[in-house]
């Protein structure tokens, strides 16, 4: 079902309401080409995480459509869409549930029904990609936050999804862990969507920025433009990097 020339992500007028009736997304449209790396920014509660959870059908939209590499998300395609969209949750503790790191990273490929050798190869490759191959026998809850984040990314990489969506990947990381994570992002040859408050990360690694507020797309422009538009940033709960003395702004 994967079309060669289809956009990586084609979201049309996506609407989502929580079961209690709160309307979280008011018609979001977004097209992302294969290999693009885009930032999703906006204040707390603007709908960033909700949007990401709609991309692989964890939340089911109340209107509009999501197409991933040409395949429309519905009940029937849930499994194969999840083989295309890897989701990194903001809290790595939510993602890691197995007694050992290796088992956790193997979960995705095992669930896909891949043969054992390939599962192990994929898991070890993914751990190597995040520099955690020494930790495969460790229990996830004994790792530091930075290590947990890296293992969590490995659990997504091992699935070999062509698109990954990351929710606040650099939150609470120390500067070195953060730097390593950004370098890892830069190395990935995948389509990447990052929901973040970390505008320095946006400036460094993500060429395109979508501003979300109140469940709507406010702006969708090159990151350089958005990051230099102080009025836009202030109006949506963000601050220009110059206020932090960052050299890129």
């Amino acid at each position: 079902m994967t079309q060669v020339d289809a956009p990586a992500l084609d979201v049309q007028d996506l609407r989502f309401a929580y079961p209690d009736g709160t309307q979280a997304l008011h018609g979001i449209s977004l097209r992302v080409e294969p290999g693009e790396k885009i930032a999703l920014i906006g204040p707390n509660g603007s709908g960033k995480s909700t949007f990401l959870l709609n991309l692989n059908g964890i939340f089911r939209s109340t209107g509009g459509s999501v197409r991933v590499f040409g395949e429309t998300l519905d009940d029937r395609t849930l499994g194969s869409i999840r083989a295309k969209v890897g989701l990194l949750f903001s809290n790595p503790d939510d993602q890691l549930f197995s007694p050992t790191v290796l088992e956790d990273v193997s979960y995705g490929p095992l669930h896909m029904g891949l043969p054992r050798d390939e599962v192990l190869a994929r898991a070890r490759d993914a751990l190597a990609a995040v520099g955690m191959q020494e930790f495969e026998a460790r229990a996830p809850h004994h790792l530091s936050l930075g290590q947990k984040k890296r293992v969590a990314i490995a659990t997504v990489l091992s699935m070999g999804t062509p698109l990954i969506a990351l929710d606040e990947p650099t939150a609470n990381l120390d500067p070195r862990s953060r730097r390593e994570l950004i370098e890892l992002l830069d190395r990935l040859r995948l389509t990447v969507i990052v929901a973040t408050h970390d505008l320095a990360l946006v400036a460094d690694s993500l060429p395109r920025t979508v501003v979300l507020d109140g469940g709507r797309v406010i702006a969708d422009r090159p990151s350089v433009d958005v990051l230099n538009d102080a009025d836009l940033l202030f109006a949506h709960g963000l601050e220009p990097l110059s206020l932090h003395g960052h050299p890129h702004a």
Binding site: R82, Q95, G108, M159
Partner: peptide, 9 residues
């Protein structure tokens, strides 16, 4: 998080 990684080929 588990469901997100429960994909099918």
């Amino acid at each position: 998080a588990r469901d997100s990684r429960s994909a099918r080929l």
